[in-house]
Simulated assay, not measured.
Amino acid sequence: MNSTPEHKRVLLTGVTGFLGSHTAIQLLQKGYHVLGTLRDMDRADSIRNTIGKYTTNSDNLTFAEADLLDRNIWRELTKNMDFVQHIASPFPAGLPKSESDLLLPARSGTLDIMEAATLNGVKRIVVTSSIGAIAYGKSSQELKQTLDENSWTDENNLKDTTAYYRSKTIAEKAAWDYLKNNDTGLELSTVCPGAILGPILENDFGTSANIVISLLNGSLPALPKIRFDVVDVRSVADLLIRVMEMPKAAGNRYIAASARMSFKDIAIMLKQTYPEIKIPRYEMPGMFTRLLSLFQPLLKPVLLETVQRRVDLNKAKRELQWMPISAAHAVISCAESAIKHKLIASWKN
């Protein structure tokens, strides 16, 4: 790595989140001082205790209460910071009541943080985007091509996007446009993860973990016939830090995913590991997946995955020597931790 992290300071937004807490752990382990933002300071003690189980450097972790829509707070929080890891973004388990609940904080929050970082001389900001900002909003002709970091989701194509994907696309485009239109020394890099699995640290876990939990707790009677790109949360945190530290990453987007998997692939892995659990084996046709989504909000955002999307996952590996944890390990470690935290209601132990 091209950095000496001792005493360097990182502002990390969304420290209580699934990815935020894992990233904080890895930053602290490397010697960084981390200021983590959360929406409610009442969560500070519990997240400190959680993070403290995985690093001996939790004394270098401080907290600040912040809202993505509070423009003024970011000018204060970015003072004396070397880097910003902007991870916080609304990610609902189901469909939002209003699309503006996602779009407004995602776009405005990103721009306000970038403006504040520019004002206070931050070296680089890393924005966590999503593969949803790359591989969606596509025509049938575009879907015949292999997509990569040069591809952008068309947020105006409502048929092939979700509100969440549109929010991530709009926010990331706004970040790149900000640098294009402002003469600033701030460096920007973005990371676009697929479905994030891996070990859950506490009951406040990432939405994607419901993919595994739904198969273990019996809430899915059959398997949706869909595929999606999977990545371990620890590997995303590792990539976020590589992108922050390495000079060659400035001005670049990076997809974070290790493999494309189907619900059936995941079900088979879980059945092999937990043969005593009743896990569905039958793949339901697309029309039944759509019908089930009326009763299972979890499935609504993933209905788009019935379409084949070819995505090149190699740029981060090639340029940054990133070696992600296997998708299989991401699945099983997610399951193990969900059971450990008693998130599987039917689990007998």
Results as ranks from 00 to 15, higher is better:
V231L: 09
I73A: 13
K248C: 09
L239C: 07
A249V: 01
N181C: 11
F263D: 03
I277G: 08
I196W: 12
L147V: 10
V311L: 14
L27H: 14
A256W: 12
T306M: 10
W74L: 15
P301H: 03
W347K: 15
Y136D: 13
H86C: 12
I339A: 12
R71A: 12
K278S: 00
A117L: 04
E187P: 14
P247Q: 06
L201E: 00
S214N: 09
R318C: 13
P193C: 14
A256M: 11
M261S: 12
D238H: 11
L61G: 13
D229N: 03
M244Q: 13
K97Y: 06
P5Y: 03
V331E: 09
A175D: 05
A328R: 14
D70A: 15
R107E: 10
L223Q: 06
S140I: 01
E202T: 07
T207K: 08
A257T: 01
E76H: 12
I73G: 14
I196K: 07
N150A: 08
R107C: 10
L304N: 15
R310S: 08
R9A: 00
Q141T: 12
N203E: 02
A209E: 05
V307T: 08
E202Y: 15
L299Q: 12
M287N: 05
K144T: 11
T128W: 03
L104H: 15
E6C: 10
L143A: 14
